[in-house]
Design a protein around this nucleic acid. Structure first.
Lengths: 342, 342
DNA sequence: ACCATCAGTGCAACCGATTGCGCAATCAGC
DNA sequence: GCTGATTGCGCAATCGGTTGCACTGATGGT
């Protein structure tokens, strides 16, 4: 049997409560006693039992991280391990543990979240996605359980703490970049409009077009979820228009890779014929060919801030909801090119 | 305050112990009582407190998943979310939760694992990597704590349960494929030789060369960790040899992408001038250009089996150690080509 | 010299479950 | 009708901690 607080107490010649206070570094215990107890702990190789502790203090030093349902291939996105890294780094520092949930369906996800919440497994939750009418978010919100979302919540925006980039500005800027390069026919490829981030990026794109007095054509907006077979068709259609685009704003680096691939198959060159700008700056976008012009949303930092915000909320239940906007940086690389420089 | 087992007991007019037994679906409780209690639970919205439960039964319905230290960019590999998906799917099914550890350094990782083990946070651990002289593995082994590793352990191979592919065979086969295509100058690019998987794949490569009576040249083996700047040099050097290779076996799809990029920069075409075959078959390898010939190691399945093995070990402490070899399938795509077909 | 204060610890209740054991009621067998 | 087994359930200890409160002895003020 593992060594318990009582064993330590006995060995140090004090009461269990004293040991407990030593662990908590309570002021009222004399330095001498503390030393003695600490030595006993070391000697015995004592480690407190979290379950007992959590039961007593009604808390857990753990937070839950909810990934999008793994049915959409989205989970394969390097975005997730990276943001996990960000969250994990500060979690480790603060001695928190991470629970992750990877339900395959929305239903499963929801169940897992309920397990986390009701089962008292976690003190708070980070949502790594934001989609419209999300039951999980509604549930957490209604239960008033501490949570923060990475991305903009689909509703109750100012009552929910979230960390995000200014996606519409970033999108506007990167679209503007294409415009500056002389492109007049710029299309947008994004994921499901269920996802808030898609909507924001689309909006930024549109507003840039508008500001530049370029037409905002419906047929230039394609929505395809992560390159499944349908995506192929959509792209083909885009390029068989009477006036095919010369520039593409794509909401995700990974999609860009797929699109570039298709384009080359169709006989277009990037950036020779088509310029492509996208989002996220995953590690890949640098080593691919051509390297992608993309907005670096600082995934790691998103994670770091999300965690910090969550801890604040956990510590003080009535912490006001806040919004953290992590700055982005556009990485200009070789997938974009002047229209005339062909 | 949350509703406890006592509340349910009171409402149902029974003792807490009875409620507990109803939860466990104990035989000795009459169906009628069960119904009554279940109704009370429903009505009150009762959810058992895991901490209390775990404390009492000295177990947790959770397992830990240890990722490689995030300092190496390895964490960005889609391999991880995908295997997490596999693990998570069956974990969910069996009502287990997942703890992940993402330490940035080996030291941090070790600390987290100790927290998991000593703190009684998890029933078992899955190691998502296998490297030489790993303190974490040694620790778990020595403590006789239930764990399984994904990949082949660096030592004590037949006392540790692990799930892996037959990497040497796969590597031999895919190298043979290159040979069949007429390649005689085939190089190998792998990650750190600290990682067991690299060693296996290297071995398979060598054995294929040997079997075909091709020379096994030292200068054809480059070891570069995930494409950092040094990798660039290594590849350049490889192609400035008197006899540069025409075929490449690369231990990871992501590295392949980087290498293809470099090669094109250097003026080589894939597969025109150089054929490339690699490993893992991450989603990307299909949508990239050219699509990669790669061995599909069935990442998701690796995860599924790892979890199942772990649970067996958890349930029966003396479960014999086993080895699960998940079959691979080679995906022949366009990154490899006959040497003469140029 | 006396009382109030305070530092340093221990007692015991409690957190919310599980479970071995015991007891009452029912039932079968004779 | 009596006995022994069986069924159905409750008592109370236990898991390993935390924490409010009480207690003791020393200190300090008057």
């Amino acid at each position: 049997m593992r060594v318990t607080i009582k064993d330590v107490a006995k060995k140090a010649g004090v009461a269990p409560s004293t040991v407990s206070r030593v662990i908590a570094d309570n002021q009222r215990i004399s330095l001498e006693t503390k030393k003695r107890v600490r030595k006993a702990m070391k000697d015995l190789g004592y480690h407190p039992n979290v379950n007992a502790r959590n039961l007593a203090i009604r808390s857990t030093q753990a937070i839950g991280v909810v990934m999008p349902s793994s049915t959409d291939k989205a989970l394969q996105n390097p975005f997730f391990p990276e943001i996990l890294g960000g969250i994990g780094s500060v979690a480790h520092e603060m001695e928190y543990s991470l629970y992750v949930s990877t339900g395959s369906t929305e239903e499963e996800q929801f169940e897992e979240v309920k397990r986390m919440v009701f089962g008292n497994r976690v003190d708070g939750i980070i949502l790594l996605y934001s989609r419209a009418n999300d039951v999980v978010m509604d549930f957490l919100f209604e239960k008033n359980f501490p949570f923060v979302v990475v991305g903009k919540p689909y509703s109750e925006e100012n009552q929910i703490t979230y960390v995000d980039n200014d996606n519409v500005k970033a999108s506007r800027e990167i679209t503007q970049h294409l415009i500056d390069l002389g492109h007049q026919y710029i299309a947008f490829i994004g994921g499901s409009t269920e996802r808030v981030v898609t909507v924001d990026r689309l909006q930024g794109y549109e507003s840039a077009l508008e500001a530049a007095d370029l037409p905002n054509r419906e047929e230039y907006k394609v929505q395809t979820e992560f390159l499944e077979s349908g995506g192929h068709k959509a792209v083909e259609k885009l390029f068989s228009l009477d006036q095919p685009p010369t520039g593409l704003v794509i909401a995700d680096d990974l999609v860009s890779l797929g699109v570039i691939n298709m384009l080359e198959e169709l006989g277009f060159r990037v950036p020779g014929d088509i310029s492509i700008a996208s989002f996220n700056n995953v590690y890949l976008s640098e080593i691919t060919r051509p390297p992608l012009t993309t907005v670096d949303i600082q995934i790691y930092l998103l994670g770091v801030h999300a965690f910090k915000c969550l801890i604040e909320k956990v510590k003080k239940k009535d912490e006001p909801s806040k919004r953290i906007i992590v700055p982005y940086k556009i990485k200009y690389r070789q997938s974009t090119k002047e229209i005339d420089g062909k």
